[in-house]
Write a protein that binds this DNA or RNA. Structure first.
Length: 662
RNA sequence: GCCUGGGUAGCUCAGUCGGUAGAGCAGCGCAUUCGUAAUGCGCAGGUCAGGAGUUCGAAUCUCCUCCCAGGCUCCA
């Protein structure tokens, strides 16, 4: 009997009989591993356990509690979902069912125009559990393209995928099939699915899943093609992991900015105004004001000048800029005025800033010229796209446009990236990576040379920042590529925040120029940049990042002072007055309710500091300090000490709580 | 825009078979004077999202519109 040798991830080698597979290997290593094994990674390629190994292969056994393992079991759970749906709705078409972050989905079209409703999820889940209990093996078979077409002749979506692979029309289908071989998995003769694999050995290895929701999804993500119904599920390697995930979803829901916005009385969306139009209440208005004031201060220091522009304009402006060519659909419809002119609400600030640049002749000595505006724009977002403060129809951008020479742009961009990251850090975000979005396939203007230069310049700047850099192919604006700063929040979610776009086109379209040292006209280049993105969205992200516990410097109310009895109220007012001298936002909650009730209310309002004054404090000029997030209140803190502490915390934008939590 | 689900007091929600509207919190009034997350009693609060229809009778059934949620598409 000849033997083969395979290499393990730790570098050691094992001898196996010829024809052995990864399951045999796992068994040879240990019974525990054999029991856990879900799939294998052979020379970097994910495969079933049953595929025969070859001499010299590098083999890793994939187990459930790993990213690859979860991926495999989620994918297999998606197959079980499809099988369950076909059992319950004979004749259902099933399209694709990949694993995704935290789970999986599968897209279906039911016969006779039937549709899933939320109530169906329970029955489907029950059916899936019986399939799991039946301990069905996942068996792989391989066919030619023609055989595959015959096999799935009753499944139009599968036929399209197989034909697509044959013709090479959809390269991404190669992830469903594999090259020119059509592979399938069947658990029982009743259900067979087109799939590249790999899968777990048997359905009994699954089971810690839950179907989450049903949603519409266009076939191949194309809104012109039929809309299928997608069922989303989550699946994990253990009951504990599943329940931890569900708990985390609950936690995320508790910090949802829409919920906190209501609970903390920050903002609302009056239905009288229409979708995606928010009003900021006094408390939310305070947060906004603090954010804007801080941003202004930083921009002054950063060499920006401040401009203002109107909210509506004649159509001509957006014809020149090109926005009407690409974005007319998502602009509010024009107003037709008596003079025959059409006026639009502005969806962008940049063309206005170009006009300011053009208002007089410019010299190279003025460059870089940095114009900043909190510019309110209106975009007619599709009704299904609006979402809380993060996707609205009226928003204020912290928008600036920098006009500079080609020689200046690399340095200017590098300085800008530095400026951006510094500002974001001041708001308490500090885990970043960058994304470079390149020229879109169709929606774009300009020459290849210009785009190449712009992309190369941005890429160099991005790499110079020393952060991870991802490439988002085709994700740029129509006039130029962009760098976006992505930030991870306190619960690990990532948000696209600042964008920096390099634009050679707009100055040309508007024929902007400056006089250079050679006494000739030259074309400036333009950098578009927004740091918050929009004030509304950035506020939403911060609210969720801090779970509503905004750091003291941003809190709508920073201190609440409570007297123990009503004869302490005047002392409470004195303390508040002293703090107010320091610019602290402070109020007094007078003692006509029990202290505990007032403490509770202040806690629910997430006030950073609750000060209590009683008999001892009146005598010794002290307060009791109940800090948000601290375990125990302090007693007998001198008013002067507290003032100094608070001043320092506010000045440094400190967040003792977040520091405590991490 | 499309698919699914939803809209009852300021907020969170209950409301059975179609029989005429309910709780807790918040608000207001009175009493209570208290040392770190809920003092007691009382009062007031509703076009059941809006409109049309079926019915002796509609929060409840049907249709249309508006708004919200989760997705898909889109996101300068």
């Amino acid at each position: 009997m000849s033997a083969i040798k395979v290499q393990l991830p730790d570098g050691s080698t094992r001898s196996l009989e010829e024809g052995s597979n990864a399951r045999d290997l796992a068994g040879a290593i240990g019974s525990r591993l054999a029991k856990d094994a879900l799939a294998a990674q052979v020379n970097g390629e994910l495969t079933d356990l049953t595929r025969p190994l070859e001499n010299g292969d590098v083999v890793a056994i994939v187990t459930p509690a790993s990213d690859l393992g979860r991926d495999v079991l989620r994918h297999s759970t998606a197959h079980v979902l499809a099988q369950a749906v076909v059992r319950l709705w004979p004749g259902a078409y099933y399209a694709i069912g990949p694993s995704i972050r935290d789970g999986f989905y599968y897209d279906f079209e039911l016969p006779h125009g039937a549709r899933f409703s939320d109530d169906d999820l329970g029955r489907i889940e029950d059916e899936m559990r019986s399939i799991v209990a039946e301990d069905q093996p996942f068996l792989r078979s391989e066919y030619s393209i023609d055989e595959g077409l015959q096999l799935f002749k009753d499944q139009p979506f599968k036929v399209e995928i197989i034909s697509g692979v044959g013709s090479g029309a959809n390269p991404e289908d190669a992830t469903e099939v594999g090259g020119s071989v059509v592979s399938t998995y069947s658990n029982t003769p009743e259900f067979q699915d087109l799939c590249r694999g790999p899968h777990v050995p048997s359905t009994k290895r699954l089971g810690h899943f839950r179907l989450m929701r049903v949603a519409g999804a266009y076939w191949r993500g194309d809104e012109k093609r039929p809309q299928l119904q997608r069922i989303y599920g989550t699946a994990w390697e253990s009951k504990e992991a599943l329940s931890a995930h569900l708990t985390q979803l609950d936690e995320a829901e508790k910090r949802d900015h829409r919920r906190l916005g209501q609970e903390l009385d920050l903002f609302s969306f009056p239905s009288e105004l229409g979708p995606g139009l928010a009003v900021f209440h006094p408390r939310g208005g305070t947060v906004r004001r603090v954010m804007e004031e801080y941003s202004r201060t930083r921009h002054v220091a950063g060499g920006y000048e401040f401009v203002n522009t109107p909210h509506i304009t004649k159509a001509e402006l957006f014809e020149t800029s090109g926005h009407l060519d690409w974005y007319a659909e998502s602009m509010y419809p024009p107003m037709d005025l008596d003079d025959g002119q059409q006026y639009y609400l502005k969806p962008m600030n940049c063309p206005f800033h170009v006009l300011i640049f053009k208002a007089r002749q410019r010299s190279y000595r003025e460059l870089p010229l940095r114009m900043f505006e909190f510019g309110t724009v209106y975009r007619y977002e599709k009704s299904g796209a609006v979402h809380g403060l993060t996707r609205v129809r009226g928003m204020t951008q912290d928008d600036a446009h920098i006009f500079c020479t080609r020689e200046q742009m690399a340095q200017e961009l590098a300085d800008l990236l530095d400026f951006v990251l510094g500002l974001l850090r001041d708001f308490g975000l500090n885990d970043f990576y960058l994304e470079l979005s390149t020229r879109p396939d169709v929606k774009s203007v300009g020459s290849d040379d210009e785009w190449n230069e712009a992309e190369t310049t941005l890429a160099d700047v991005a790499r110079g920042a020393g952060l991870d850099l991802l490439i988002d192919v085709g994700g740029g604006a129509f006039y130029g590529p962009k760098i976006s700063v992505e930030a991870r929040d306190a619960i690990g979610r990532t948000h696209q925040l600042s964008t920096i776009q390099l634009d050679f086109q707009t100055p040309q379209r508007f024929e902007a120029s400056y006089i250079a040292a050679d006494n000739a006209r030259h074309r400036p280049i333009m950098i578009h940049r927004a740091l918050f993105g929009s004030v509304e969205r950035f506020m939403a992200i911060l609210i969720e990042h801090y779970a509503g516990n905004l750091p003291t410097w941003m809190s709508p109310e920073q201190v609440k002072v409570l007297g123990v009895r009503d004869d302490h109220d005047s002392c409470a007012h004195d303390v508040a007055a002293a703090l107010r001298l320091d610019g602290v936002r402070v109020s007094v909650d007078e003692a006509n309710e029990p202290l505990g009730a007032r403490i509770r209310r202040a806690k629910m309002e997430k006030v950073p500091y609750i000060l209590v004054v009683g008999d001892e404090d009146v005598v010794s000029h002290t307060v009791g300090v109940n800090a948000r997030g601290a375990n125990d209140p302090e007693r007998g803190v001198s008013v002067e000490d507290f003032r100094a502490r608070l001043r320092a915390e506010i000045a440094t934008h400190g967040s003792p709580e977040l520091a405590r939590a991490t």
